[in-house]
């Protein structure tokens, strides 16, 4: 079976240029139904551009977007009827109250009137719904934007940096809400972020974009597996450079990170023991020798620093 036919959202060979500047290069996203897809990348990597392409706000230079198995270019209005989106900062009319802001989109989409109160309650804004949106805090604005995205009870939610400007509590609340939406309501959620820590606790799948190319795509366990080959030994001694000269074979792959600190790729327990013995017999002091497992964040940074070929 064609893998994209079971996907809720898929892109094929998506390219986008801004004038002559290439922004996206052959992006093939695959989002399965019922997943929370963390779309990760540093600022300027092309996350927002991709999100806009998924909504038909931008026209791709090449490639296509499939929503619910249908070509977006041909069925845009129908497909968007099942999508809720929050792109960058929420689009709020400051002269209207929170409730009127929800109403404006509710009328535009022709949704039943009772939904307004329901989504306001869902994001905890019922008590502040009568206040003008200009009086809202950043966190409240973000929640109001989310309420508007949830109005149509969409099957697919596209959230672009939804935790932007939220305090730690707000980030936790947002995470809880996303998890709730997926687990209790079976929603599929694509959420972009430049911080992996925000995503790793909630995402089931991850896509990492770097300089307009998708450098990793897979489940969260896949990403975790990727990092196991990257454990390193941290060696602390008096004079790292001297050690390297004394033990050229053992320390060939080491990198100097401080006057007395060396990093080298971890290979085995035996390697660790041999290194300790060799250093001592060479008369060098051994202040510390420890194994470091890179965090998911290190893996993410590594992915976004490295060139695309690394993970291909």
């Amino acid at each position: 079976m064609n893998p994209s036919s079971s996907a809720l959202l898929a892109t094929q060979g998506l390219y986008f240029n801004f004038g002559k500047r290439p922004i996206l290069h052959d992006v093939n996203l695959l989002v399965e139904p019922g997943s929370i897809y963390g779309f990760l990348g540093p600022n300027g990597a092309g996350k927002s551009t991709t999100m806009r392409l998924l909504l038909g706000l931008l026209r791709p230079a090449a490639g296509s977007v499939q929503l619910f198995g249908h070509d977006l270019a041909r069925h845009r209005v129908a497909a968007l009827g099942r999508v809720g989106a929050l792109i960058e900062n929420p689009s709020l009319y400051d002269h209207l109250s929170g409730r009127e802001n929800v109403e404006a989109t509710r009328r535009l989409r022709g949704i039943a009137a009772h939904r307004t109160a329901e989504v306001l309650a869902l994001v905890g804004l019922t008590d502040n719904a009568h206040r003008a949106a200009k009086e809202y805090s950043l966190g409240m604005r973000q929640r109001l934007g989310l309420a508007i995205a949830l109005l149509s009870d969409p099957d697919l939610l596209l959230l672009d940096e939804p935790t932007n400007g939220l305090d730690p509590n707000g980030i936790i609340e947002m995470r809880e809400l996303l998890r709730h939406l997926r687990e209790e309501h079976g929603k599929t959620i694509v959420v972009s972020s430049h911080l992996i820590n925000e995503i790793e606790k909630v995402a089931t799948h991850v896509g990492v974009i770097q300089q307009g190319r998708l450098v990793f795509q897979g489940s969260l366990p896949d990403l975790q597996r990727l990092q196991t080959g990257r454990a390193r030994l941290v060696l602390e001694t008096e004079d790292a450079d001297t050690c390297r000269n004394l033990l050229p074979r053992l320390l060939a792959g080491a990198t100097l990170v401080g006057a007395g600190t060396l990093w080298l790729p971890w290979i085995s327990k035996e390697q660790t023991a041999e290194l300790a013995a060799a250093l001592t017999s060479a008369g060098q002091p051994l202040y510390g020798l420890r194994l470091e497992q890179p965090s998911l964040e290190d893996t993410f940074l590594h992915l976004t620093e490295a060139k695309a070929e690394l993970v291909r």
């Binding site: 809720l8 139904p33 019922g34 619910f68 198995g69 249908h70 069925h75 209005v77 129908a78 497909a79 009827g81 099942r82 329901e118 989504v119 309650a121 869902l122 949830l150 009870d153 099957d155 697919l156 939406l181 209790e184 309501h185 079976g186 929603k187 599929t188």
Partner: peptide, 17 residues
């Protein structure tokens, strides 16, 4: 919860625009 319905994994047809 009556606020949101569960999305069904089948999506062969789109509602018409």
């Amino acid at each position: 919860n009556p606020v949101l319905t569960s999305a069904l994994p089948d999506f062969p047809t789109l509602p018409s625009a």
